[in-house]
Write a protein that binds this DNA or RNA. Structure first.
Length: 532
RNA sequence: CGGGGAGUAGCGCAGUCUGGUAUGCGCGCCUGCCUUGGGAGCAGGAGGUCGGCGGUUCGAAUCCGCUCUCCCCGACCA
């Protein structure tokens, strides 16, 4: 269903969510010519943004994508940040095999039921039929459970805090770049604990890691809550999630944390002798986020001109665009750029960057060694400045720094924000790390605030099913309602409205009310939405 | 997996109905000149065998069958 996005544009669906307005009035000749507007076709816009930024491409194999360098750099940024957060909490990375014996899945009844339909299975190897078919991992609980059963003997071996960065395969019927592909990259954390309370605590701790990561790093506000039984991970006792709202008002699950109880410990015989000298099953958890987060960043922040990256995540923070009309001006401008950058980043870095052009005339200078974030100088002479502006805008760099003859004469640079289009004339001496860091932090915060305002403006309370149905007929967004979770009611609601319970918010106890569907008394409040 | 749409140069398309040599169109690309504060201009040039396989035909981008991939809707599903 199309949803209007252009500011002041026609609102075909009165209740519909609306995207962020661009800074100025969109003039036909200033709009990206290779990107469909959100208003016209949100789905196509999403694909166009990916294509324009060269983030990913299709592969010859159905449902699989190629993640191109600009897209993969985003995944690396996510990895770097999350990996650090995991390690701070004592998790250790490891690697378990891609192939999992088919029989492993059958050991946990719900797990096999949930994953069997989407498993890719290898039946042949070395030209011969395998004795036992091998599943390509859709997730690794079974393999890890199997290995842990051999490693865990005593309460002193616990907790086990593991994580792996890996690819997984789930045979999907309907795919979409980054959001749902047959193969994707993710991180799966797996932990085993001595007690139920510890495992539960771990489940919530990692959920909180995801929440703060999403909000602080990706600048995406998320709801935190528990899934209902019908949305629960196959084999879990409880599933928790973070849920974000995209600019079309649809929900996207951005991460999950599962309390697995002793289900997998029983299935795989993960037992240890406790402090009480009794043999008992361990309590396990698992939690993950995937390359889907890149899709979330695109759909939450970007606009009709292309990608917009939150500064903390952006592989490149600023693009310097030199402007000149002749050789004299060129020499003058480039010398000024070099001098300014040497002042900002050091002469060594400027010198080192001269060997780092890669396959273009785009010079990369590291701004932050730890994160690998850079500032680029676009020295290409085949492109005029205007074209470079579009080029870097579509790639979502937070800042653009223009340097022309007039600026050099005044000893200034022009700093333009990708987010709101504002320009600032900055004396070269004032272009310091302090200035840039503050500017980038301001953008990071503004992006979060903007996304949060949007989400809040499209979140409503709802008391009757009539109102509920009407809302999802016309528009998108989150509806908070009293509702007593029931698979049967949820199925019917989904059939009638397409909406599902996204989560039961944690951390607050609602006042008593009436169930939006049945009219029964209810003390549970949930959030409904149409989701990806 | 069901319904609908699409696949012709890197991208966007015309040509397909009514078979007859793709010097095809715009953008991009390469060379040169010229230009450079929001996608410049001129001149010259490279690049496609029409998604794939098979069939009909003297002859297939065009007609027929099968198949692959993408997009939209639905079912299924993290």
């Amino acid at each position: 269903m199309p949803v209007p996005f252009a500011p002041g544009g026609p609102r075909r669906h009165p209740g519909a969510a609306r995207g962020h307005p661009p800074a100025g009035p969109p003039r036909e000749d200033e709009m990206a010519r290779n990107i469909t507007t959100r208003e016209k076709d949100y789905s196509q816009w999403y694909l166009d943004v990916i294509a324009a930024a060269e983030m990913a491409d299709y592969s010859p194999v159905r449902g699989c994508m190629v993640i191109r360098p600009t897209g993969y750099a985003l995944w690396e940024a996510i990895q770097r940040e999350l990996d650090g957060r995991f390690k701070e909490l004592g998790h250790q990375n490891c690697y378990f095999p891609l192939f999992i014996p088919e029989s492993f899945f059958k050991k946990e009844a719900e797990h096999v039921e949930g994953f069997a339909p989407e498993c890719a299975v290898v039946t042949h190897g070395g030209g011969e039929r395998l004795e036992e078919p091998l599943c390509i991992r859709p997730t690794s609980e079974t393999m890890i459970g199997h290995m842990w059963s051999q490693w865990v003997h005593s309460w002193r071996d616990l907790p086990v805090l593991n994580n792996q960065w890996a690819n997984v395969v789930r045979w999907e019927r309907r795919t979409r770049l980054f959001l749902r592909t047959s193969e994707f990259l993710w991180q799966e954390g797996h932990t085993a604990h001595e007690t139920e309370a510890e495992a539960m605590e771990e489940t919530m701790r990692m959920l909180e890691v995801y929440r703060s990561f999403a909000e602080d790093f990706l600048a995406i506000p998320v709801l935190v809550g528990e899934k209902t039984e019908s949305e629960r991970f196959a084999g879990a006792v409880k599933t928790f999630c973070i849920e974000g709202m995209m600019q079309d008002g649809k929900a996207l699950q951005m991460g999950t944390s599962h309390f697995l109880g002793q289900n997998f410990a029983r299935a795989f015989d993960i037992r240890f002798e406790g402090r009480d000298q009794k043999l008992q099953h361990a309590w396990t958890t698992s939690w993950g986020v995937s390359t889907r987060l890149i899709g979330a960043v695109i759909m939450v922040h970007s606009d009709d001109e292309g990608l917009i990256l939150p500064p903390r995540m952006a592989p490149a923070l600023a693009a310097v665009i030199p402007i000149f009309r002749n050789d004299d001006e060129k020499a003058k401008v480039l010398a000024f750029v070099e001098k300014t950058l040497a002042g900002l980043l050091g002469e060594d870095e400027v010198a080192a960057s001269l060997t780092r052009f890669g396959n273009s005339q785009v010079q990369q200078l590291f701004y932050a060694q730890a994160s690998g974030q850079s500032i680029v100088v676009d020295r290409r002479e085949t492109m005029r400045p205007g074209e470079k502006h579009y080029f870097w805008e579509q790639r979502g760099l937070p800042l653009r720094i223009e340097v022309g003859p007039r600026d050099v004469d005044g000893g200034n640079l022009v700093v333009k924000s990708r987010l709101d289009g504002s320009k600032e004339v900055v004396p070269a001496a004032a272009l310091t790390r302090g200035y840039l860091d503050a500017k980038l932090a301001g953008i990071q915060k503004a992006m979060y605030d903007r996304a949060k305002s949007f989400r809040d403006a499209n979140t409503h309370a709802c008391g009757s099913y009539r109102e509920f149905s009407k809302f999802f007929e016309a528009g998108r967004g989150f509806l908070r309602c009293h509702f007593n979770p029931s698979s049967q009611a949820e199925a019917q609601i989904k059939t009638e409205t397409k909406a599902t319970v996204r989560l039961i918010p944690v951390g607050h106890t609602p006042a008593p009310g009436t169930d939006v569907f049945t009219g029964d008394p209810s003390t549970t409040e949930v959030v409904f939405a149409i989701s990806y």
